[in-house]
């Protein structure tokens, strides 16, 4: 147990310190990579709340990344070019607040529909709703449509400066740690127990008197908000957002991270995101066709890891 805590502490320290050190030594590339890693890991942690702890297989979580990023880009766009005075701002609190608000509303509305159904219906409907957001942004010419929207000004906060890549990275890393801690707290709470019970045997939970729909919806909304938050950071990092970032292949990659890292664990999403980023970097330097080995790897893991990837899912009651 002591050893495990030590290793976990080491991972967190490495995620925070190594990129800063490399940057200091003149390799800013790794800082950017680590920033992207932290942002993806936040989204994976958010997805893990419903996929891992709640057993809800959402194939549409990239949509929340998009919503969060557009919630930064659209106010900045109007601040610069006029129109939509109500939201035209570069104020980070407003932009991030908007990101959380929009993603919670979208999660609430779509959750009301997709949580009524189970299994494969749920997978397909979450996909379809994400695709709806994708086509929505393609259709809005003012925000760049297909070509995407350049975010000319990053979010402005007092004391921190998002234009400074070191500060932005530090914010992303600290946010990641905070979100990991948050989801860990939730998973250990009474709500988390109920969620685990629903994942284990929903029918029994209903028969015991739990309104399981409401609990799942709450988890779904929290999960969406975390991914929306991640999207707002993503917008600040890339200073660009396009519908392509909402594409359902992105949702698939998020799922891959969560499952490869280990669902329903605190560190799983982070480890999955690290693996994904490394794979992507290494494979894409070897070949522009890196999706081929990546796809083969995915198939291989599903087929040959005993019982498939879902066997890697520890049961909710297993103690760490």
């Amino acid at each position: 147990m002591q050893k495990k805590v030590f290793v976990q502490g080491l991972i967190l320290a490495a995620v925070l310190i190594v990129p800063l050190l490399l940057n200091y030594m003149g390799h800013p590339f790794y800082l950017d990579l680590a920033t992207r890693l932290c942002i993806l890991a936040i989204a994976a942690v958010g997805l893990n709340l419903i996929l891992g702890y709640g057993g809800m297989i959402s194939f549409g979580h990239a949509a929340y990344l998009g919503l969060g990023a557009y919630a930064v880009g659209i106010p900045a766009h109007h601040w610069l070019y006029g129109g939509m005075d109500a939201i035209a701002t570069t104020n980070g609190f407003v932009q991030f607040g908007l990101a959380l608000l929009v993603s919670s509303i979208f999660a609430l509305l779509t959750g009301l529909i997709c949580l009524k159904v189970k299994g494969v219906y749920f997978i397909m409907i979450t996909m379809a709703f994400a695709q709806m957001v994708y086509y929505l942004f393609i259709s809005i010419a003012e925000y760049g449509g297909d070509d995407g929207l350049v975010i000319d000004t990053r979010s402005e906060f007092p004391l921190v400066n998002f234009d400074d890549s070191t500060q932005l990275f530090t914010i992303c890393a600290v946010s990641l740690f905070f979100v990991m801690w948050l989801v860990w707290r939730i998973s250990k709470s009474q709500f988390g127990m109920v969620l685990a019970g629903i994942k284990g045997n929903e029918q029994r939970m209903i028969a015991m008197g739990y309104n399981t729909f409401a609990y799942k919806l709450a988890a779904y909304v929290i999960s969406g908000m975390i991914c929306g938050f991640s999207g707002a950071l993503l917008g600040n990092f890339t200073t660009f957002i396009s519908p392509e970032m909402i594409d359902w292949a992105r949702s698939g990659e998020l799922m891959f991270m969560v499952i490869l890292g280990g669902v329903a664990t605190t560190f799983g999403p982070l480890l999955g995101a690290i693996t994904f980023i490394i794979l992507e970097e290494v494979l894409s330097t070897i070949t522009i066709y890196w999706h081929l080995p990546f796809g083969l790897l995915l198939i291989g893991v599903v087929m040959f890891v005993k019982g498939g990837l879902s066997a890697l899912i520890p049961k909710a009651g297993d103690k760490e």
Binding site: I57, Y289, H291, L292, F294, G295, I299, V302, G307, G308
Partner: peptide
């Protein structure tokens, strides 16, 4: 994958998409 659950179907065929799309690209 028939005997596996839907999550494995989704991930396995998602991998297959990446492979087929990349092959088509090549």
């Amino acid at each position: 994958l028939y005997e596996r659950d839907h999550l494995d179907h989704v991930l396995g065929t998602f991998g297959a998409i990446l492979v087929m799309d990349t092959l088509a690209h090549m």
